[in-house]
Design a protein around this nucleic acid. Structure first.
Lengths: 197, 197
DNA sequence: AAGCAAACGCAACTGGAGTAGTTTTTGGAA
DNA sequence: TTCCAAAAACTACTCCAGTTGCGTTTGCTT
């Protein structure tokens, strides 16, 4: 949602950009990362393929651009009143996001692209920095309530809480149950209470 | 694709298979996953490219096969006498493996291939099952020594301990310091002691 | 030691991703 | 309105990953 710092923010370029972004997300949802081609995105968006190649370079460029879009969108941080409930809520949000039949393939594509391409990796990094920052709010509130020591590294608690879910999904390729997600949240909380994080 | 030497295990096929496996690993170490092509592996191994295509199908098939090789190789589980030292040792082993300039690209390639290809994902899954099983030995010893409650899920402790390292490396794309690795191990240990894992 | 099917080698081909050069359109400013 | 530079469209091309059909070699079987 940026106001645009470049030269011609409101004209044809902006329309092309929006059309390509939307087509990229739609193609990702339908065909996943391996099925994403520049030509199909071009055709779907009504933009010529040479134009897409010149502005985005390749498939990873398309994904990096879509990631910037996703980064700025806020997501619903839970507020249950206790750190147990909030932290579990955050981790369940991650889990359910990847289980979603529409969002799942798109999110998977982001991870896949970032593992191969430096630009996509940087874009995904920025995305997670933003996510950690937002999610850490639940930890800050817990500290304010006196549930956790104030020396706790609020972002690290989030990382340790969500890490097992991502690890299972994208590294070990194991299924992730709701119970697994809860347990990961509880583990991070126990470590935080013990003063390790 | 498949490993079982059902029909002609010791003949030409076996020689071809070994040559291709070795060439795959060498190519991965030099050029990484994005630089891995079937044609270069064929040329390097002295095997014709159509043969490689027929037996391995594509790049992901080559990687899956190499993964089966890596799965069966044991790795040095630490034995420091305390669960703190052992668990930290396991996590540091993971960290240093990916930091290694030769092993790093190969390991990264495994993860990258598994995110895109189901066969590679299954192969990597099996690899991690084997790794978890081996690594869990340090937790079992701790239980035997009375350092941890005997209801602990020994594999889950390993997962939670290493997960933050993998998460940083392959998902959030953040650097991982030795201190980060130690802290991840300590967090898992604190959770295990608290009875969460 | 012959037979035979599986596996490999070979060359020619296909198709689509990505590129280059050029022309046309567009949006903003004078 | 006129002008202009940036951006997009168009055409035609290159290049290489992956395929196909067929001939050749290999090694297990009896």
């Amino acid at each position: 949602m940026e106001a645009g710092g470049s030269k011609r923010p409101g004209g044809r370029s902006a329309r092309v950009r929006d059309a390509v972004r939307q087509a990229t997300l739609a193609e990702l949802a339908e065909h996943g990362y391996t099925g994403l081609t520049v030509e199909r995105v071009a055709e779907r968006s009504g933009v010529h393929k040479t134009t897409v190649y010149r502005r985005w370079g390749n498939v990873e460029g398309l994904i990096s651009d879509a990631l910037e879009l996703a980064r700025d969108e806020p997501w619903p941080i839970p507020d249950t009143g206790t750190i147990e409930g909030d932290l579990r809520g955050v981790v369940q949000l991650v889990r359910s996001g990847f289980a979603d039949p529409e969002l799942g393939p798109v999110s998977l594509a982001f991870v896949a692209a970032a593992v191969q391409n430096d630009a996509a990796a940087r874009a995904l990094h920025d995305f997670f920095v933003a996510r950690h920052e937002q999610s850490a709010e639940v930890v800050r509130r817990a500290v304010a309530r006196g549930e956790l020591p104030d020396v706790v590294d609020v972002r690290e608690v989030i990382r340790v809480a969500v890490a097992p879910v991502y690890y299972r999904l994208f590294v070990a390729h194991e299924p992730v149950s709701e119970r697994d997600a809860d347990r990961a949240a509880d583990a991070a909380l126990a470590a935080a209470r013990a003063g390790v994080l």
